[in-house]
Design a protein around this nucleic acid. Sequence first.
DNA 1: GTAACCAGTTTCCTTCAGGAAACTGGTTAC
DNA 2: GTAACCAGTTTCCTGAAGGAAACTGGTTAC
Lengths: 121, 121
Amino acid sequence: MKKKAATGMHGDCGPKHLAIKDTMELLSGKWKIQIIGALMRNGTMRFMDLLREVDGIAAKMLSKELQELEINELVKRTVCDTKPITVEYEMTTYGRTLEKVIAELAHWGELHRKRIFKKSK
Amino acid sequence: MKKKAATGMHGDCGPKHLAIKDTMELLSGKWKIQIIGALMRNGTMRFMDLLREVDGIAAKMLSKELQELEINELVKRTVCDTKPITVEYEMTTYGRTLEKVIAELAHWGELHRKRIFKKSK
DNA sequence: GTAACCAGTTTCCTTCAGGAAACTGGTTAC
DNA sequence: GTAACCAGTTTCCTGAAGGAAACTGGTTAC
């Protein structure tokens, strides 16, 4: 018989780890969250905007990550009939549901940074 | 002048992306969240318990991940003077502050799974 | 016609995460 | 003394992630 600790976690820990895994896979990698962050902050952005704003990313990576985000319907891609053609990227309504998750990640990260900072002095 | 979208995100987006990056780095990799999950569900666990519970992990990986989690003070390691010696791992109080983050990841992941499921039929 | 801008793609290369299996070193039960 | 359990470590290997740079293909401004 396994010990059950008072973790505060609510019942049914069934496929929850799969759900977590899914989310992590969607967000993992060096760039996805940064791209999402840029799009959430700035609204609609073109490819070149993103290339400039996401610090250090290469065109290949940006292209690849945007494709993945589009496939997962987090980001919408719109080709504009301008000269020269431009392409607009923005978060989908669905993509915006990630805001809470990202806010939590940011919030905890800030606590952690404060903690690390205190230690170091 | 850059467009500011109504993201619901609150002011100061300064080093926030660093905070997010920190959190992601701490949780990234194939195993960390699974280990944390196991410890949160079961309370105190020994090395062998974890090896059995975390499906598919190899001893090397478990050892390495636990070291990293310990360094970051998310997990506490206690050597028990039993025969043969056993080692207990448990979440620290600090580690438990991750609960909300993980709950958000799980919650979003479940929504996402439902969405994928709907599409597929 | 040539330089510059847009939105990528392709190629080639390096690094690192992670896996399998063997090995260490101690303890106990028989 | 030998088999089994604990808690790892070491070695060797592979595949995927990611970076740099060159290339494509179209359009416009000069």
